[in-house]
Amino acid sequence: MADVPVIPSGQTFECTPTHVWDGDGPIWCAEGPRVRLSGIAAREIDETCSPGHPCPRASGRDARAALVALVGAAAGVGRHGHILVTGPTMRCRSDGSAGGNRTASWCNSPRAGDINCAMVNDGWALRWDRYWNNHRC
């Protein structure tokens, strides 16, 4: 597996989405990073919620479909179950590591604006106050 960079906290970077796993990420970027959307929680694809995480009513599959629509268009399914996407390059700001090789980030798409806020405002994910950090939609 190729090295996947974790972008340092506070740094902005570009992300052209290529794959989406679930409603809060990771979103794989053509530029290398894997983005976990900051400050939100969506159900897992198996419809569970991890202990201690906010647990929205929206299904994991519906949340993933909503995120795919916000960042671009579905272009198939990858060999590990990720949804392949094509979409415009987003501008993201890192909140640092989200564990493993994921970068916690706030992302804006020329297609849909603030992705993190859109997922919460449309009911696909819940705001996770512990990580929201006074973000403004």
Results as ranks from 00 to 15, higher is better:
residue 11 Q to T: 14
residue 68 V to W: 03
residue 29 C to M: 02
residue 87 G to R: 08
residue 119 M to D: 09
residue 34 R to D: 14
residue 25 G to D: 03
residue 42 A to T: 05
residue 127 R to L: 09
residue 109 S to P: 06
residue 2 A to Y: 10
residue 2 A to D: 13
residue 104 A to E: 06
residue 112 A to I: 03
residue 120 V to W: 11
residue 17 P to M: 04
residue 125 A to R: 13
residue 29 C to E: 09
residue 126 L to S: 07
residue 4 V to T: 11
residue 129 D to R: 14
residue 75 A to M: 00
residue 103 T to F: 06
residue 9 S to K: 15
residue 71 V to Y: 07
residue 72 G to K: 08
residue 20 V to N: 01
residue 62 D to F: 08
residue 26 P to H: 02
residue 23 G to W: 06
residue 14 E to P: 12
residue 101 N to P: 13
residue 28 W to M: 14
residue 74 A to M: 04
residue 59 S to R: 10
residue 137 C to F: 14
residue 103 T to Q: 02
residue 7 I to V: 15
residue 97 S to P: 12
residue 129 D to N: 15
residue 75 A to H: 01
residue 107 C to P: 05
residue 103 T to P: 06
residue 83 I to V: 12
residue 135 H to G: 12
residue 106 W to R: 10
residue 95 D to S: 14
residue 64 R to F: 02
residue 41 A to R: 09
residue 123 G to N: 03
residue 18 T to E: 05
residue 35 V to T: 03
residue 115 I to V: 15
residue 110 P to A: 05
residue 69 A to R: 13
residue 115 I to C: 04
residue 113 G to F: 00
residue 77 V to A: 02
residue 67 L to E: 06
residue 130 R to L: 05
residue 19 H to L: 11
residue 88 P to A: 15
residue 119 M to T: 04
residue 76 G to F: 01
residue 10 G to Y: 08
residue 93 R to K: 10
residue 41 A to K: 11
residue 23 G to D: 07
residue 99 G to L: 09
residue 62 D to S: 13
residue 30 A to H: 02
residue 8 P to Q: 05
residue 42 A to C: 00
residue 55 C to F: 10
residue 100 G to P: 10
residue 115 I to T: 06
residue 16 T to A: 04
residue 35 V to P: 04
residue 12 T to N: 04
residue 53 H to N: 13
residue 90 M to G: 00
residue 51 P to T: 11
residue 43 R to I: 00
residue 56 P to D: 08
residue 86 T to S: 12
residue 78 G to N: 12
residue 11 Q to M: 13
residue 58 A to K: 12
residue 124 W to F: 06
residue 108 N to E: 14
residue 55 C to G: 04
residue 76 G to P: 11
residue 12 T to V: 02
residue 100 G to I: 12
residue 14 E to N: 15
residue 134 N to Q: 12
residue 120 V to L: 03
residue 136 R to D: 12
residue 101 N to R: 14
residue 94 S to N: 05
residue 45 I to Q: 11
residue 109 S to E: 09
residue 21 W to S: 00
residue 47 E to H: 06
residue 77 V to T: 12
residue 19 H to C: 00
residue 81 G to N: 01
residue 45 I to T: 01
residue 137 C to G: 11
residue 82 H to S: 10
residue 109 S to H: 09
residue 41 A to M: 10
residue 97 S to L: 15
residue 89 T to I: 10
residue 95 D to N: 13
residue 81 G to A: 05
residue 60 G to Y: 05
residue 10 G to R: 10
